[in-house]
Write a protein that binds this DNA or RNA. Structure first.
Lengths: 231, 231
DNA sequence: TAAACACTTCGATTATTATCGAAATATGAA
DNA sequence: TTCATATTTCGATAATAATCGAAGTGTTTA
């Protein structure tokens, strides 16, 4: 009686109203905790948990555990693209310019996370490297493409040296303010160091926020197509 | 990818396994009598009738009465397109038998996607036309170059006639097995028809896989530089 | 004209599944 | 340690919908 049709599996997931609501929320490209998704879909946490488990096991949605939260996201760009069309959603607008605003907002704009860049700048840099084909996205890490090897050499980051470091070469790190991944690991650290060396960014005393210099504005725009407005 | 409101309706109907099986069977682009669809989906005729009525009233399937038979078919390319989208992110089929394995292989090699070619052959043909400078790739469609006009005339496809058709002249369709785009729309259909006319490919009973003939192997190699292993 | 056939409609039954309360687990904060 | 929070698991319920036997409507064939 059961026909082996896989189209049905995906269709079931997107056609149920609560799940459609969850997927719609997730299509903003960020990671969301389960409770937030439950609230957005107008269902109790248990029910959301039930739906999320289904979508994870069908490889439509991913989970990551951070403390007592679980952050859910769309599996990958390909899936996101198709879901957008199935759910009739316009893709999220890209933020093209960053506003350098007050001090409390500064930490959201750009900050260090241990030894690498985070905040809007960190996420945008990661995005930009991805779009440029310099890095590629894997499950828990980023990989450097052939084109990337060239790029980093030109950008005067010695990949050979970075690869020799004991710790993981390149990994994903969840950005709490952006709810998306940014580049971490030895490569993330090397990038931060290089930007400091170029004086594109400067560390600030008593805060993890970093300042983007005038040189930085220029350089980030030219090299990574990232625009930053100073207010 | 185009956003459309029909996607939700299609997804809801596809989510039921029996209906998914029926629709998948209809993806060969041919018309099938109700009893055959019932058999293919592994359900009784009454049940199939129930599902078919639903799909007809939702305008995703068509019926034609010929004597005591009723022939069902996919409403239009849009429906086929949505179905293929669902398939492209669905988990791969579990192969349970040798027969099923060879069937799966055949479908991935060359098949019809409603009214045009898909599978490895479909993608290779599209690639080849592109490389030959016959067609050019745009965002959501392919365009025919000047050189292309000549080519299709020589290949005995009447572009004037194809352009007059109501539906879109040439568009991209996502190939679920190759995960790339192939040529669809009126031009895609004309190409399929011409290859059938030339007897380079043949439709097979009870499957949307198509057979590549000996003539086809020769012709595809000479005209499109496509080498294909036949099973 | 009767019988076979293709298909549909009707009604009863069964299967599926979304939902949520209650309870369990695991982490973080005080 | 204790309490709060985030999330999941379990179990029961209720709504929905797929299924099929029986019967009905046309259509073809003998």
């Amino acid at each position: 009686m059961k026909a082996n049709s896989n189209a049905a599996i995906v269709a079931t997931l997107v056609s149920e109203p609560s799940r459609a609501a969850i997927l719609t929320a997730l299509l903003d490209g960020r990671l969301h905790p389960a409770s937030e998704l439950a609230y957005m879909a107008g269902i109790k946490p248990q029910t959301a948990s039930f739906h999320l488990a289904k979508m994870v096991s069908a490889n439509i949605v991913t989970v990551e555990k951070y403390g007592r939260h679980r952050y859910y996201g769309i599996q990958n760009q390909e899936v996101a693209h198709i879901l957008e069309s199935l759910l009739s959603i316009a893709p999220p607008v890209e933020v093209k310019s960053l506003k350098q605003a007050s001090e409390e907002k500064a930490i959201r704009l750009a900050r260090t996370c241990y030894d690498h860049l985070a905040g809007n700048l960190g996420v945008q840099l990661t995005d930009s490297l991805n779009k440029m084909g310099v890095i590629g996205e894997k499950k828990d890490e980023f990989i450097v493409t052939e084109k990337g090897e060239e790029f980093f050499t030109a950008f005067q980051i010695d990949l050979g040296k970075v690869k020799k470091e004991r710790r993981s070469f390149s990994r994903k790190c969840l950005d709490w303010s952006e709810r998306r991944h940014h580049l971490a690991g030895a490569l993330g650290n090397a990038l931060l160091e290089r930007l400091l060396e170029l004086n594109w960014i400067q560390r600030l005393p008593k805060t993890r926020a970093v300042k983007i210099t005038m040189d930085g504005q220029k350089g980030l725009k030219e090299t990574f197509s990232i625009e930053i407005e100073t207010v």
